[in-house]
C-alpha cells in the first residue's frame, strides 16, 4: 500500500473513532433526556413527593427521599473530604515535606485513586460490622468521603503546584510563617481548588457502589444521621430492572435528574474557576 494511502486511511480511522465516541455520548444523553424527560413532563411532582408505602412494588409517590439522601450524604462528605484533601495537598508542597516523601504519598494517592469504589463500600461495611452498627446516612458519608479524598487531593495538589512561585517568595519576604504563606498560596490556587471541589462533588453524587452497602437502600424519607437512607444512583440501580413499568419510569426520571445535576456541576466548576481567577496573580479581569 502506498504510504499516502495509509496516511489517508489512518486519518479516516481516527476521525471515525472520535465520531463514535461523540455519537455514543449523544446517544446516552439523548436516551436519558427522552425517556426521563418524558416521565418528568407527565408528572414533574415525583421529584418532590415522598415515596408511598409500596414504592418499590407499585411506584406510588415520588423519589424525594433519594434526592434528599444524595444531598445529605454527598454534601457533608464533600466538606469533610475537602478539608482532608486541602490539608494533604498543602503538606505535600515543598515547604512541609521532602520530595521523597511527597513522591511516596503521591504514589499511594494514585493507587487509592485507582481502587474500585466497591472496595471502599466493603471496607466501610466491615467497619459497620466491627462496630456492631446499622447501615445509615452516617456511614454513607464516610464511604463517599473516602472515595472523594484521592480525587480531590489530586486536583488540589495540581492547583497548588501550578500556583506561581512569586506568591511564596513574596509572603516569605514580608515575614509570613509557613502557614500564612500557604493560606496565600491556596487563595492564589483557588480556581483549581474550587474546580476540584465541584468535580469531587460530581463524582460523589454519581457513585453507587460505595453507598450500595453502607446506607441501607431505604425506601422511606431519611429520618436522621443514624437512620437508613438511599441516594439517586442506588435508586436507579434498584429500580432499573423492576418488572413494574411505573417503577422503572421513576428510574428514568431519576437518571434525568442525576444527569442534569452532573452536567450542571461541570458547567459550574468551569464558571467558578473563571470567577475565582481574580485571586490568581495576573488573573484579574
Amino acid at each position: 500500500m502506498n504510504r499516502y494511502t495509509t496516511q489517508r486511511l489512518f486519518g479516516i480511522a481516527v476521525r471515525t473513532a472520535a465520531l463514535l465516541i461523540v455519537g455514543v455520548l449523544l446517544l446516552v444523553i439523548g436516551v436519558t433526556v427522552a425517556r426521563g424527560g418524558g416521565v418528568l413532563l407527565a408528572d414533574p411532582s415525583i421529584v418532590v413527593t415522598p415515596p408511598g408505602s409500596r414504592y418499590m412494588l407499585e411506584g406510588t409517590g415520588g423519589f424525594l427521599h433519594a434526592v434528599l439522601g444524595s444531598l445529605f450524604i454527598v454534601g457533608p462528605a464533600t466538606a469533610v473530604s475537602m478539608v482532608a484533601a486541602v490539608s494533604t495537598a498543602v503538606y505535600l508542597q515543598s515547604d512541609y515535606s521532602s520530595d521523597r516523601f511527597s513522591d511516596a504519598v503521591n504514589m499511594f494517592l494514585n493507587v487509592l485513586w485507582g481502587t474500585p469504589p466497591i472496595v471502599y463500600g466493603v471496607f466501610v461495611l466491615t467497619l459497620i460490622i466491627a462496630a456492631g452498627a446499622q447501615t445509615s446516612l452516617f456511614f454513607g458519608i464516610i464511604a463517599i468521603a473516602i472515595f472523594q479524598y484521592p480525587i480531590m487531593t489530586r486536583y488540589t495538589d495540581e492547583a497548588l503546584r501550578a500556583a506561581p512561585e512569586t506568591v511564596r517568595e513574596t509572603t516569605y519576604g514580608v515575614g509570613a510563617t509557613r502557614f500564612e504563606s500557604m493560606r496565600m498560596t491556596v487563595r492564589a490556587a483557588a480556581p483549581g481548588v474550587i474546580a476540584g471541589l465541584v468535580m469531587g462533588f460530581a463524582r460523589g453524587i454519581g457513585d453507587a457502589a460505595t453507598v450500595l452497602f453502607t446506607t441501607g437502600r431505604s425506601t422511606r424519607m431519611p429520618g436522621g444521621l443514624f437512620e437508613a437512607a438511599t441516594t439517586l444512583p442506588v435508586l436507579i440501580f434498584d429500580q432499573a430492572m423492576s418488572f413494574n413499568a411505573e417503577v422503572r419510569s421513576h428510574a428514568y426520571a431519576a437518571a434525568f435528574v442525576l444527569t442534569i445535576v452532573v452536567l450542571g456541576l461541570i458547567l459550574l466548576s468551569k464558571l467558578l474557576a473563571g470567577r475565582y481567577a481574580r485571586y490568581t496573580p495576573g488573573g484579574n479581569r
Partner: peptide, 9 residues
C-alpha cells in the same frame, strides 16, 4: 463525568 449507573440504565 456521567455516572456509570446512567450508562447501565
Amino acid at each position: 463525568a456521567i455516572p456509570s449507573v446512567i450508562f447501565g440504565l
